[in-house]
Every structure is written in C-alpha cells, then in structure tokens.
Design a protein around this nucleic acid. Sequence first.
DNA 1: CCCACATATTGACATCTGTCGATACATCGC
DNA 2: GCGATGTATCGACAGATGTCAATATGTGGG
Lengths: 124, 124
Amino acid sequence: MTTVLPLIHSDDVGAYGPRLTAGVVSDASAESLAGVFKALGAPTRVKLLSMVAAAPGAEACICDMTAPVGLSQPTVSHHMRLLVEAGLVTREQRGRWAHFRIVPGALAAVAFALQPAGSATRES
Amino acid sequence: MTTVLPLIHSDDVGAYGPRLTAGVVSDASAESLAGVFKALGAPTRVKLLSMVAAAPGAEACICDMTAPVGLSQPTVSHHMRLLVEAGLVTREQRGRWAHFRIVPGALAAVAFALQPAGSATRES
DNA sequence: CCCACATATTGACATCTGTCGATACATCGC
DNA sequence: GCGATGTATCGACAGATGTCAATATGTGGG
C-alpha cells in the first residue's frame, strides 16, 4: 500500500495538486491526501521528519535519530519506511548507513492543499 | 483525548505556531501537530472537511453529508466529532440540526507548519 | 575470512480505529 | 402530548497501528 506523490487527480486539482477548500475533493484525492496526513499523524514521525529537516546537510541516518526519540532501532526504521512510502522523504543507502532527506516540495504540496482558496506561497 | 488549537509551544514556534522545518520540534509540538494530522488522516474526514468548506454558506449539517460519503449517520457523526476535537471545525446546534463550519485559520496554521522555512502566505 | 556495526525483517502483542446496528436524546409540527 | 425527524451515544467487531525482542542482511575493517 505504497502511497506516492504527486497528489494529482481529475477534478479538484489546482496547479500544485488537490485543494481541500476548492470544492468537494474526489475519492482519489481524499485517499491521497489522507495517506500523507496519516504518515504525519504520529508524534514520532513528526519528530523524525523535523529531525531530518534540521539535520546538518538536511540529511540524517537512523543511528542519529534512535537516541533522541527514545525508541528502538527497528521502530525508527519502521517509521522512516512509512515516511518514505508517503513520499515525504527519500532513502539513500551509502555504505552501511541509510541517509534520509526531505523530498523537495513534498511538504509544500501538502501545505498548498490546506491553504484557503486564493492564497499563494511566497519566498521571503 | 481532546486535541485543541492553538499549536503553540515553547521552543520551535514561529509567529503562527510550530514549524516542521525550523529545527527539531518539541515533544508537545509533535503531539499537537500529529493530533491534527491524525484527524486529517482518514479519507472520509478529508472528504467531509472539503464538503463543509464547499457547502453553501460554508456550513453543512450531518444530514447533507451522510449520503455523499455513503456511510451511516452514526459514523459521520463520529468523524465530525473528531474533526471538532482536532480544532478544525466548529459545531453549532440550531434547532434539530448540527451546523458545522471550518475554523477560520485552522487549516492555514497547519499549512504554515508544513511550509519550508522562510516562506509566507499571501492573499491574491 | 571473520567480526563489528548499521539497518531491515519477522513475529508477537496490546491498543487504537473505522464501521455498523440498536437505541437514546432533543426538537419541531400538529 | 405525540409522532416524526436530526443527531448523539453505546456496544460490538474486524482490521490497522505502534512498539518491542529476536534475527537476518549487508557492508567495511583488519
């Protein structure tokens, strides 16, 4: 049950994907959006995601995250797998280590889906 | 286990709440954010939320939503309760009907939490 | 070649979740 | 008051989820 970006479907899509506030979303869009939200729906994964984003070089490996979240290595590996399947992070195996990175634009796409109709995001 | 906005906590907060990409979030922020994401983590609730947003007058009652989602009335009531508890919609009892509305700014606050550091939202 | 180390997989378990049918509660019209 | 109607609550149940210990897999160093 691997959920993947892009969150693009037929009816309720804007330029960057479906939008919650732009009419009733299709079943497919609801499924895609809920898939990403479900991946974000555990405190552990929220923290892991922020740790990846905040890591030096925007890159983190499991060994660096196990201790801070206070969970076992298999559990952290499991959560990271879910984040990868949701299309929020990428895994890159380099030697013994698995390096995780935030997928560029993935979080922004979800943010876009939540913004009120008629608003846009601008870089400062 | 009623989760409520605002998603404000000590360390990782910006002007509008915690931000996933602005350093490692605190346990409390991770819990708050995950609570909202969990509420959005079911296709049924995503669709219900968009139906409320798209309803005439931005207001909907259970009786209008039961048929479109194809679920029983108790189930829809249950989902709406979760959305209310997550702080995403409000319930207002008027006569026999329960009227639901999107909480102004609630979705925007979640969107803010997901936006990359240094970006802002602007009305068009 | 073998050991140490980083990660993934498996199996198990308690808990949470989504759904329903049955039923209770509340309000309106008559 | 009574019946109809909209909504909430309760009890039940299958399935998903988060976690762990044990184990497997893979990689690098000596």
